[in-house]
Protein backbone atom coordinates (compact mmCIF):
# COMPACT_ATOMS: atom_id res chain seq x y z
CA UNK A 1 0.00 0.00 0.00
CA UNK A 2 2.73 2.41 0.99
CA UNK A 3 4.69 2.08 -2.28
CA UNK A 4 1.54 2.47 -4.38
CA UNK A 5 0.59 5.65 -2.50
CA UNK A 6 4.15 6.91 -2.87
CA UNK A 7 4.08 6.19 -6.61
CA UNK A 8 0.77 8.05 -6.97
CA UNK A 9 2.08 11.02 -4.98
CA UNK A 10 5.23 11.09 -7.13
CA UNK A 11 3.19 11.02 -10.35
CA UNK A 12 0.90 13.82 -9.14
CA UNK A 13 3.84 15.95 -8.02
CA UNK A 14 5.53 15.35 -11.35
CA UNK A 15 2.38 16.38 -13.24
CA UNK A 16 2.01 19.50 -11.11
CA UNK A 17 5.65 20.62 -11.22
CA UNK A 18 6.23 19.74 -14.90
CA UNK A 19 9.91 19.01 -14.27
CA UNK A 20 12.51 19.44 -16.98
CA UNK A 21 15.19 16.77 -16.99
CA UNK A 22 18.66 18.33 -16.76
CA UNK A 23 20.78 17.71 -19.83
CA UNK A 24 23.48 15.72 -18.01
CA UNK A 25 20.80 13.35 -16.70
CA UNK A 26 18.95 12.84 -19.96
CA UNK A 27 20.77 9.72 -21.25
CA UNK A 28 20.60 7.97 -17.86
CA UNK A 29 17.10 8.65 -16.59
CA UNK A 30 15.20 6.18 -18.79
CA UNK A 31 17.54 3.32 -17.91
CA UNK A 32 17.46 4.31 -14.23
CA UNK A 33 13.65 4.25 -14.27
CA UNK A 34 13.65 0.76 -15.78
CA UNK A 35 16.17 -0.40 -13.16
CA UNK A 36 14.05 1.04 -10.34
CA UNK A 37 10.97 -0.72 -11.70
CA UNK A 38 12.96 -3.95 -11.70
CA UNK A 39 13.86 -3.37 -8.03
CA UNK A 40 10.21 -2.66 -7.18
CA UNK A 41 8.93 -5.84 -8.82
CA UNK A 42 11.74 -7.81 -7.19
CA UNK A 43 10.66 -6.42 -3.80
CA UNK A 44 7.03 -7.42 -4.33
CA UNK A 45 8.15 -10.89 -5.23
CA UNK A 46 10.36 -11.05 -2.15
CA UNK A 47 7.42 -10.02 0.04
CA UNK A 48 5.34 -12.83 -1.41
CA UNK A 49 8.19 -15.28 -0.99
CA UNK A 50 8.46 -14.17 2.60
CA UNK A 51 12.10 -13.16 2.28
CA UNK A 52 11.60 -9.39 2.02
CA UNK A 53 14.07 -7.18 3.81
CA UNK A 54 13.89 -3.37 3.89
CA UNK A 55 17.63 -3.03 3.74
CA UNK A 56 17.94 -5.31 0.73
CA UNK A 57 15.17 -3.43 -1.08
CA UNK A 58 16.65 0.01 -0.47
CA UNK A 59 20.14 -1.11 -1.39
CA UNK A 60 19.02 -2.99 -4.47
CA UNK A 61 16.87 -0.07 -5.60
CA UNK A 62 19.72 2.42 -5.32
CA UNK A 63 22.39 0.10 -6.66
CA UNK A 64 20.20 -0.88 -9.63
CA UNK A 65 19.73 2.77 -10.52
CA UNK A 66 23.39 3.64 -10.10
CA UNK A 67 24.69 0.59 -11.94
CA UNK A 68 22.28 1.08 -14.86
CA UNK A 69 23.29 4.71 -15.19
CA UNK A 70 26.96 3.77 -14.94
CA UNK A 71 26.64 1.10 -17.64
CA UNK A 72 25.08 3.65 -20.00
CA UNK A 73 27.77 6.17 -19.12
CA UNK A 74 30.49 3.64 -19.78
CA UNK A 75 28.84 2.57 -23.02
CA UNK A 76 28.69 6.17 -24.22
CA UNK A 77 32.36 6.60 -23.42
CA UNK A 78 33.26 3.39 -25.26
CA UNK A 79 31.12 4.29 -28.28
CA UNK A 80 28.63 1.45 -27.79
CA UNK A 81 26.13 3.48 -25.77
CA UNK A 82 23.03 2.65 -27.79
CA UNK A 83 23.81 -1.07 -27.97
CA UNK A 84 24.58 -1.25 -24.26
CA UNK A 85 21.40 0.66 -23.38
CA UNK A 86 19.45 -1.82 -25.45
CA UNK A 87 21.17 -4.71 -23.68
CA UNK A 88 20.43 -3.26 -20.25
CA UNK A 89 16.79 -2.68 -21.16
CA UNK A 90 16.48 -6.23 -22.47
CA UNK A 91 18.03 -7.76 -19.34
CA UNK A 92 15.92 -5.66 -16.97
CA UNK A 93 12.82 -6.36 -19.05
CA UNK A 94 13.41 -10.10 -18.84
CA UNK A 95 13.88 -9.80 -15.07
CA UNK A 96 10.71 -7.75 -14.69
CA UNK A 97 8.78 -10.31 -16.70
CA UNK A 98 10.04 -13.23 -14.61
CA UNK A 99 9.30 -11.37 -11.37
CA UNK A 100 5.80 -10.51 -12.55
CA UNK A 101 5.26 -14.15 -13.50
CA UNK A 102 6.30 -15.24 -10.02
CA UNK A 103 4.06 -12.62 -8.39
CA UNK A 104 1.17 -13.75 -10.52
CA UNK A 105 1.70 -17.33 -9.48
CA UNK A 106 1.60 -16.31 -5.82
CA UNK A 107 -1.42 -14.03 -6.04
CA UNK A 108 -3.61 -15.87 -8.51
CA UNK A 109 -2.32 -19.40 -8.19
CA UNK A 110 -1.76 -19.53 -11.90
Amino acid sequence: MIPAIGLAIGIVVGLLLQPAVPVWLQPYLPIAVIAALDAVFGAVRAILDGIFSDKVFVVSFLSNVVVAAFIVFLGDKLGVGSQLSTGVVVVLGVRIFSNVASIRRHLFDA
Partner: peptide
Amino acid sequence: VMVLAIALGFAIIAQVRQ
Protein backbone atom coordinates in the same frame (compact mmCIF):
# COMPACT_ATOMS: atom_id res chain seq x y z
CA VAL B 1 10.22 2.98 0.72
CA MET B 2 7.73 5.83 0.43
CA VAL B 3 10.49 8.25 -0.50
CA LEU B 4 11.86 5.89 -3.11
CA ALA B 5 8.39 5.32 -4.56
CA ILE B 6 7.77 9.05 -4.78
CA ALA B 7 11.13 9.49 -6.49
CA LEU B 8 10.27 6.71 -8.96
CA GLY B 9 6.87 8.21 -9.82
CA PHE B 10 8.44 11.62 -10.24
CA ALA B 11 11.19 10.21 -12.45
CA ILE B 12 8.71 8.32 -14.62
CA ILE B 13 6.66 11.45 -15.25
CA ALA B 14 9.78 13.51 -15.89
CA GLN B 15 11.02 10.96 -18.41
CA VAL B 16 7.64 10.69 -20.13
CA ARG B 17 7.48 14.45 -20.55
CA GLN B 18 11.08 14.57 -21.70
